[in-house]
Computed example of a mutant assay.
Amino acid sequence: GSSVKGKGHICKLGNSRIRQLLYMASMQAKKTNPACAALYDRLVGAGKPKLVALIAVAHKLVRQCFAVARSGVNFDQKLALPLVS
């Protein structure tokens, strides 16, 4: 959909240091993590701003970290790849 209120903004709530570290990690992850790179490329290709795509990559990193911590299993790159139909 479209909005008459203008461009969306990223919320600045939470710890600024953690946000900064996640942002820097997402910039590196889009280069080295195939799942994050695919997400970034898909969002930028769909017309999203690059900053929004980087924040989505940061969110994906947080979800991957919590999944590894919760399951107690080492990170497996094959399981992180997006499903391609």
Rank of each mutant, 00 (worst) to 15 (best):
A53V: 04
R42F: 04
R63M: 08
L83V: 07
G45E: 02
A67L: 06
L39F: 01
Q77I: 12
V52F: 10
G8A: 14
A69T: 07
A56E: 02
M24K: 11
Q20A: 14
G45C: 02
A25K: 06
V52I: 12
K7P: 05
K78F: 09
G45K: 01
L81G: 06
I10H: 14
A58D: 00
A53E: 00
D41P: 03
K50A: 11
V52G: 04
S16D: 12
S3V: 13
Q28I: 15
L22K: 06
Q20M: 12
Q28G: 11
Y40H: 13
S2L: 11
R42N: 08
M24G: 07
K30F: 04
P34T: 08
S2E: 14
N33T: 06
G1L: 10
N33R: 13
R17W: 09
S16C: 10
Q77M: 11
M27P: 03
R63E: 08
V68P: 00
K78T: 13
R63T: 10
G45M: 01
D76P: 01
G14A: 08
K31G: 07
R19Y: 05
A25W: 03
L13G: 13
Q20L: 13
A58C: 00
T32Q: 15
V68E: 02
V4D: 14
A35V: 02
G72A: 02
H59M: 11
A46G: 10
V52L: 12
L79N: 05
R42M: 03
H9T: 14
R70F: 05
K48A: 10
V84E: 08
S26A: 15
A80N: 05
H59I: 05
A38M: 05
P82W: 02
L22T: 03
Q64R: 07
A80C: 08
S2V: 12
G8D: 11
A69W: 06
A56M: 02
S26G: 05
L39R: 02
